[in-house]
Design a protein around this nucleic acid. Structure first.
Lengths: 222, 222
DNA sequence: CAGATCGCTGAACGAGTGTTTAGTCTGCTG
DNA sequence: CAGCAGACTAAACACTCGTTCAGCGATCTG
């Protein structure tokens, strides 16, 4: 049994993959049909139009992503667990729950940057999560809300998202995918160091230029 | 004197504006021609093809941007001047040297995310600047290189770029354009606070420099 | 078993694409 | 003045796009 998905689901998945990789405007119905091994007419038969297919894939991706997101807000464990703050956690969620070559991060990237209602809604949702997370951190004493909590939450969010928007470029210059296990292991500690004590804190270990060193660094000062 | 640019320059500028706003794949030669007030044939007459026009606009934007960038590396004044670290400075450069509605930030955004050689080259260039800036900060004692200077420079860079990639979304949730004077005045101090002492530092007394923090308000709009 | 339904294909249609071509107008130069 | 080069337009080209449509074959259903 090679594939137990319905043909409709196969088309949806291939559209998702191609949309994530090249952008919905560039991908044609014929490309989707070829990738799914069906005729172009069948794509329109199952989904009424290309635009409707796109909206359906949007909704599907948002539903899946909401499921992943529930882990962030669901469990009562501290948001600082593991490596980073709320920032690194998004990458961790992806790494833990998605297969390695999943097109979902790429699709969410397009969505966030797409100037559509779906993209704006997604960002608002993430911003709300970021604000809640910052509040929780402040409640537990793990972090301060800062002078301008709205701005602080936004900065923490976009810093997290940037790793994810510029994934390919970071992979090129660092030599490691920031959304892989190795990438998170390398980026997480450095980010935690900055969040813990700012840029002025002394590195605990002798500094070498390119090395994946020990995580912990402490020593708060102004 | 209505316009002293050559028709060729007008076409280039309109293409730049439309490419920045909608993306080069979506924009048609006829749209560019209409915006420039000429016939579609003339666009091809001046630039050999649409792809060649796109490359020429790429090159033009990169040249202009390199001019802006030279201010960052050119003057010997501390990179920490004004509000933020190397991160906020990119936004300041845009604000200082570009007219308010300039399409250049939008075009650079597309370029950075475009999966082209030009985009990858641009990111490598910015990464090199970020590394140099971090080195300079470390030399002057204003910041530490951290345990992994490559990663630290990359994180500072992408954090700066994120404000810029997610400009519209941030404007939506914060109610202020982060690349405007008001936006920089609001984001800069918060970012500086984090970079100075991390997330745990107590909020200092209201800044004498930039005025309005928004302490506890919910759902900020203006 | 007749008939309706559904998944599915192949071919076609109209619209829009980038590009080409023929030709007009204007200004410069021998 | 003749002619020529360049800016510029209108029309057409070949092509691809999203979408429509008639029909085929299998699977239910009464």
């Amino acid at each position: 049994m090679p594939d137990d998905r319905t043909t409709r689901a196969v088309i949806r998945d291939e559209a998702l993959r191609l949309f994530a990789e090249h952008g919905p405007e560039v991908v044609t119905i014929r490309q989707i049909a070829t990738a799914a091994g069906v005729s172009p007419g069948l794509v329109v038969h199952h989904f009424r139009s290309k635009d409707n297919l796109r909206q359906e894939v949007d909704q599907y991706v948002l539903t899946v992503f909401e499921g992943l997101l529930s882990e962030l807000t669901g469990d009562g464990s501290g948001a600082f667990e593991g490596t980073g703050a709320a920032t690194a956690t998004l990458g961790e969620v992806f790494l833990r729950h998605l297969p390695v070559g999943s097109p979902l991060p790429g699709y969410l990237r397009r969505l966030l940057l797409s100037n559509t209602d779906a993209g704006r809604g997604l960002f608002r949702r993430l911003y709300a999560v970021s604000r809640e997370t910052l509040d929780a951190l402040a409640e537990s004493g793990a972090a301060s809300r800062g002078n301008d909590p709205q701005v602080r939450a936004a900065l923490l969010l976009v810093n997290d998202l940037s790793v994810f928007l510029l994934r390919d470029q970071l992979t090129a210059v660092l030599g490691v995918d920031p959304l892989s296990a190795a990438g998170l292991a390398r980026l997480g500690p450095e980010l935690l160091t900055i969040y813990a004590a700012g840029l002025n804190a002394d590195p605990p270990e002798p500094q070498a230029d390119a090395d994946p060193p020990a995580p912990q660094a402490e020593g708060g000062q102004a």
